[in-house]
Amino acid sequence: MIQDGAAVLALIAMSAASTLIGFASHWSPKLASRPTDVPVPDGDIIIITRDGAFIVVQCSEEIARELYIGPEECNYLVGDQSFRILVGIGTLLVILSVLFLGNCNWTMQAVIAIIYIILNALYWVVSLFQEKYLWDLSRYDWQDVTPKYMANADSSTEGGSSPSFTRTLWFAIQVTRTIQWATNSDAAPKTAAWKAWLELAEANCGDKDWDAIGEKDRLMREERLRVGAQRNFVDKQGTSATLPVRAETA
C-alpha cells in the first residue's frame, strides 16, 4: 500500500469541491400553472422545426403551459448569496487540491489522473443517453395518434408522392382542420397564390385524397403568368424620363 498523505488530502479536497458546487447548483424546474379554474379551450400546440417539420401536440391548457408556453424558471436549492459562498469555497478547495497533487509522488498522480479521466468519460457517455433516461416524465401520459398515411412524412408514399414542405403543411392542416395557426405564424409565404391555397386546403381538410401539391402548382403557374403579364404591360407603357435643366449661374 502506498502511503501518501498529500494524495489523500488532494482527493478529499477535490471531492468536497465537487460536492459543494453540485449542491449549490442543484435545481428543479418550476412548472407554470393556471391561477384560476375557469374552463378554457384545449391548448393544442403546433411546433415548427427548422427542418420544415410540423409537430401537432393535442393537449390541455395546463399541459401546454407546463411544457411549451409557460416561462422557463428554475427553483434552486440555495439562494444567490449562499450560491456565491459555496462556489467560492469550492474554488478554494480546487486550488488546494492542485497544490496537494503537486506534492504527491508520481504513482499517485498517475492513478488520480486516470481515475478522473475515466469519470469524465463516463459523464460524456451518460450525456449521450436518450432524454427518457435523464428526465422523469412519469407525470405525463402520451400516445402517438398520427394517422397511418401521415406517418413517415419525410419519405415517399406508396402513391409516389415525394416528401415536400407543401405535403407536410397539408398534413398539419388536416389534423388541425384550420389554417389560422399557419397564417398567424407565417408558416407559408405571404403571396396571393399561397393564400388561395391555404383557403382551399382548409375547405378540403376533410378529404385526404385532395391533390394539395397539384393545386399549389396550378396556383403558382397562374400567379406567374399574371405577374408576367403585368410586367409586360408596364414595359409597353414605359415613359421617357428627362433630366431637369440646370440653370446657368454667372
Rank of each mutant, 00 (worst) to 15 (best):
L128F: 12
S155T: 10
S164E: 10
Y133L: 11
A153V: 03
Y140S: 11
F129C: 10
T178K: 07
R167W: 01
T146R: 05
Q180T: 10
I112E: 12
S162C: 01
A113I: 09
A172D: 00
I114V: 12
I173C: 02
L128V: 03
V125H: 09
R139F: 07
L122M: 14
T157R: 11
Q109T: 10
V126L: 13
F165A: 04
G102P: 04
I173A: 01
R84N: 02
Y140A: 10
I85L: 06
F100L: 06
I115E: 04
Y123N: 12
E131I: 13
S164A: 06
V94Y: 07
E158Y: 00
T157L: 04
I114E: 15
A182M: 04
S138F: 07
T157M: 03
K132A: 11
Q81R: 15
R177F: 03
K132F: 15
S155Q: 14
D154R: 01
N105Y: 06
G102D: 10
D141C: 11
I85D: 03
R167Y: 01
P163R: 04
V111S: 05
R84K: 08
S155V: 04
Y116N: 15
Y116H: 11
L96V: 09
V87I: 09
W181M: 08
F83M: 03
W170H: 01
S164Y: 04
S164P: 10
L99T: 00
D154M: 02
S127G: 05
F100G: 06
G159D: 13
S162D: 00
E158N: 09
V125I: 15
A153R: 03
L96S: 15
V98R: 08
G88W: 05
D141E: 13
L101H: 09
D154T: 03
G160M: 07
Q109H: 10
L92W: 09
V98Y: 00
I112C: 11
G90V: 00
A121D: 11
W142A: 12
L119R: 14
V94C: 07
T166N: 01
K148R: 12
S97R: 06
W181K: 09
W135F: 10
I89H: 06
I179K: 00
L93D: 06
T157S: 13
V94K: 09
I114F: 15
R167K: 06
G79Y: 09
L99P: 02
R167E: 01
T107S: 10
A182S: 13
G88R: 12
L119N: 13
Y149V: 14
Q130T: 08
G79I: 08
Q143I: 08
P163Q: 11
Q174C: 14
W106P: 02
F100V: 02
I118L: 15
A172P: 00
W181I: 10
T157Y: 02
T166G: 01
M108W: 06
S161N: 11
A172E: 01
V125F: 11
I117Y: 14
S82L: 07
S162M: 02
I95C: 04
Q109Y: 04
I114S: 15
T183P: 05
D144S: 01
S155C: 05
Q143S: 14
F83V: 00
G88L: 07
Q143P: 01
Q109A: 10
D154Q: 03
L93Y: 11
F129Q: 07
